[in-house]
Design a protein around this nucleic acid. Sequence first.
DNA 1: TAGTGGTCTAGACCACTTA
DNA 2: AAGTGGTCTAGACCACTAT
Lengths: 289, 289
Amino acid sequence: MVDPGADISAPNAAGPPTAPKGVQAADAGSTTNAPGEPTPTAPRQLPIILDRNSPVPLYHQLAQAIEAAIRSGELSPGDRLENELSMTTRLGLARPTARQAIGELARKGLVVRKRGVGTQVLSPRINRETRLSSLYEDLQAAGRRPETRLLSYELGVSAEDLLSSGVELAETELSGEFLKITRLRIADGLPLAILTNHLPARLAVSEADLAGTGLYAALRARGVNLRVAHQTVSARLMTADEGKLLAERRPAACLTALRVVYDDSGRLVEIGQHVYRASHYSLEVSLAP
Amino acid sequence: MVDPGADISAPNAAGPPTAPKGVQAADAGSTTNAPGEPTPTAPRQLPIILDRNSPVPLYHQLAQAIEAAIRSGELSPGDRLENELSMTTRLGLARPTARQAIGELARKGLVVRKRGVGTQVLSPRINRETRLSSLYEDLQAAGRRPETRLLSYELGVSAEDLLSSGVELAETELSGEFLKITRLRIADGLPLAILTNHLPARLAVSEADLAGTGLYAALRARGVNLRVAHQTVSARLMTADEGKLLAERRPAACLTALRVVYDDSGRLVEIGQHVYRASHYSLEVSLAP
DNA sequence: TAGTGGTCTAGACCACTTA
DNA sequence: AAGTGGTCTAGACCACTAT
């Protein structure tokens, strides 16, 4: 259907030492036992050590320890976690603390809690997260060689022409001066995307910053906490200019994304208009219930 | 850039009585005050009534009450919530209970908590959620008139041909018999998408169920709790058949989505291959930090 | 220094599932 | 009936922010 060759999915930040490759179907297809939920086994007592002097909260230490056990394969899909009471007495914690840890994992989709039953580990395949990541970082994480070619860099431009492009933004947010940059993103020598970004002038990054790293890394370095983003994704035919830059013979389809990013107090950080070479790129999206 | 005419975004389930239309820029552009964060005012004491005999947990009652106040405009962006101590003594709750309620709202992106400062209401514009919704329901919620034309309905087919289409699934999950359906989705008389779905035979829905409603509604009616889904989104040129069904003159671009849905215990529920008419459809995606 | 949210404890009772 | 997670209480101390 779609060439998955350039499918870029960001692996989780904490790299598992022994990542489970593919799917380890523990049991064959017994029809009563669903494939996603292999033979449940007895609860396991994980060898967890907590550092009460660490600035990292106990519940988070615990959550990370369990997550590591899941990602390393020490706990397999279908395994039951040690029950909350046993875990808390064993580790010298109060129940709410342990519950906070397990709740964190449940929200991430790593485990399911069932009243009267216990907490079960889910198949890691269904755990990928939708992250606010930059293409640059995604490419790096996937072990590819990203490059950037700065096509234009204009400081002090207006962003009000964006109003007509379907962005759902208030006029007040688009007033003032902006930095507009256009970049060509290349991976392993192949052009992959044309990225156009508008940033409020107060966040202007230098041309040098953009060359060596991704835009988001540059913003984080300036102390911006990225928080919420929306993306509107669609597709259309490439224009002649786009086809030339992306090395596609026309007619060709491109994937388009219009992204609006805010920081943790709701201030506008960036508006990105991205054009991806659809034949070499696909987007991973997770959906919540 | 992209025709936003058919942009389908699902509004939140709980309809606000007096939804704030557009953006109510409370203050003009004083350069020190960011547009997303209008004039913070003094904390407000909401008139909240809790029903201790209700089966709905107190923390959830509280969260819903605050959310309703935000969505109705009773609390505006930038307003500070009553502080936790005051709220708990006033409502006769323990602090963790109130914290659980506010935490729920913070995770949804409705409020920000800042230590030493308080809890502030965020602009509702940045609160849209990525939901596991069906196209049918999205269209209904947007006030449009969805129709479905069943193009094919085959029971007992194999799904192993999907392995080559880039789905990341175990072979064991694709073994067994499947129901394969192909539908044309129409909104207000315009063809919008071709939807191909594979369901495990145990979840086979009847042709009648599909006609009157969406696939997910039919599944929920059978007691299936949808839980996790991944979508791989890309684009390509339409084939001749697709162009005919979707009433597009070629060459034309289409948006493609490959969706895998699990239930709350990790069992495979559905594999969907969707082809959208890109000129009339775009996808809304939210991204977490 | 006063006020805020962040973490944590040590219990209690309840609802649900399974045997 | 036994075991599990779900909810809730009534406190405690700490870290951070503003003044």
